[in-house]
Design a protein around this nucleic acid. Sequence first.
DNA 1: AGTTAGCACTCTCAACACCCGAGTGCTAAT
DNA 2: ATTAGCACTCGGGTGTTGAGAGTGCTAACT
Lengths: 339, 339
Amino acid sequence: MGLSTRKKHILQAVVTDYIKSAQPVGSRTVARRYKVGLSPATIRNEMSDLEEAGYLVQPHTSAGRIPSQKGYRYYVDQLMETSNLGEEEKAEIRQVFEYKKLQEIEEIIRHTSRLLSLLTNYTCLILGPQLKKSAFKKLQIMPLDTQRGLLVLVTDTGFVKNNVINLPQTLSGNELNRIVSYLNRRLEGLTIDKITSRLIGELRRDLYHHIKFLEETFTLLEDSLAEDERRVFLGGTTNILNQPEFGDIGKVKSLLSLFEQHSLLATLLARPVAGVEGIIIRIGRENILEEVEECSLVLASYCLGKEVVGTVGVLGPIRMDYAKTVAVVQQVVNQLGML
Amino acid sequence: MGLSTRKKHILQAVVTDYIKSAQPVGSRTVARRYKVGLSPATIRNEMSDLEEAGYLVQPHTSAGRIPSQKGYRYYVDQLMETSNLGEEEKAEIRQVFEYKKLQEIEEIIRHTSRLLSLLTNYTCLILGPQLKKSAFKKLQIMPLDTQRGLLVLVTDTGFVKNNVINLPQTLSGNELNRIVSYLNRRLEGLTIDKITSRLIGELRRDLYHHIKFLEETFTLLEDSLAEDERRVFLGGTTNILNQPEFGDIGKVKSLLSLFEQHSLLATLLARPVAGVEGIIIRIGRENILEEVEECSLVLASYCLGKEVVGTVGVLGPIRMDYAKTVAVVQQVVNQLGML
DNA sequence: AGTTAGCACTCTCAACACCCGAGTGCTAAT
DNA sequence: ATTAGCACTCGGGTGTTGAGAGTGCTAACT
């Protein structure tokens, strides 16, 4: 791993220049634009070494070099200087969160994804809070008419779930209220994944004379827990079209189709080790899906309240501006955590 | 308007063939593939006339002809034979709606849009129910903690709206209940657009001693009414990428960006004259937005219950399979109406 | 020994010429 | 009125060429 400082400088120059220009960068350019006091010839030699070591590749003889995935990895790990956000940008981020304090969580996330895609010009993916890990807060059943009611479930993370259910006509308003408040008492404070079939079985027994009604309610509850497909929120899906590397319809198509398959996206955003704090960068093939093997992903967990509840990610071309993206993601995640 | 029957046949042949092949069709092809008992030369003459009359255009000399927008219009109005759906397709549609009876409305619409885009291979746009035209059904406020509550609003069309609001700590549960049931009584059965500022002012007076609390609730109510941006649901947004006419990134981009601007889409789906029943087809420039001047839109109103509540549309290239699309849309709208 | 200048070499890309085939329009024959 | 025949047109594919960018190597320089 021990690259000479000179090699480091050159590698850095190549990466930053390529990130800006999307053009293979040659020795001339490095010599001219980046004040290494060296002649092109020397730089050529060093670049040749770097290529041999696997940090750079040549698209073809007689083109400049571009970073390999290994090169990007080295850059990200060792070379990148984290850029500070401009004050205007910081202000913009703060402003978006200013009035969001008491909004519903989905609304907040939607805005966040828009903000991130706007600031970075890449595509933003946000994995919503995991229902299982949220705590039950309150449940209510609103009768709609004689046969149907609306089941409303709220978690402490501000997650709201609505479901229309059938009510038996024989059920009086009083009974309904009793049942609801009983359920609220029993479920209070439990995290959703604690509401197991066993517990539900218990509740069923206790309320045996309402079985028919409950049957459906519980099935619904169980379903929505089992499904627990965490919602993925997208922002700026068309931003990739601005990237020169996606001039080809085929690539665009496979990516855009991926964007419609939320379950796949969820796996993409899943953190490898839940424990790791801070920002994770996945470059090209380091992502599991082949649809994004030409993309990089900047990932971070975010909190709402004190718990880590989800993941935000910014997806751009491998040639993305890592420094800026990391800064933006960091800032946004911080702001989210303060809500 | 009076085309000879022979010209009609030829025009029809050209349109259908071009819809299938996306290639300009020449006189040979018409003679060979469509049993008009005529030689290419004769057909050439007729096609020449049709071009003069504006129904066909030549991309360049020595290419076949393709229909002009006028040509498509004539085809759609006079020539198109409405295709009957295959039994499997009908069954598929029915099946999707089978289990949807008591779902929430948004869920139904989401499924519908997926279904439509799947069956047609085009992009599906659905304009959700208009809040203003829906009738207020029920309102409930669930206290979440000492300071906040969840305001749940349900309309008769099955539309559910959630909003977190602040509650004054001084408010007792009883008081809250009284207020809620008072509001329910006053608002019952009114269509949302009847809940004007005047009415709200009245309510305010009647509940003057809760002004602070109500202030916020009402503002929220008013906001969500004023905003009343009808939601647009999309399906199969990447389907356009399969169309050869969108091989160019520029076009794709402008369309996909349009798909992110829901307010624009809403105007696109708005019906010109609310009264007109049945299916409307808008070809190319007949649509107001220039982003879709190379697209056609097949529109239909749909009902939920007895009221017309929204619009479904299928957006494809001008060269779309109108016959099939119309059949599918018709069928789906019918099924929706039966829910 | 490390650095640099010079030069021949390689490769891509854009421009240009070229040809082929599909399709037309016109004319003359049926 | 219809059709066969034929000259003409034009787009798209193919091959060639030249310019430009960048390299690698060698020999000279510090």
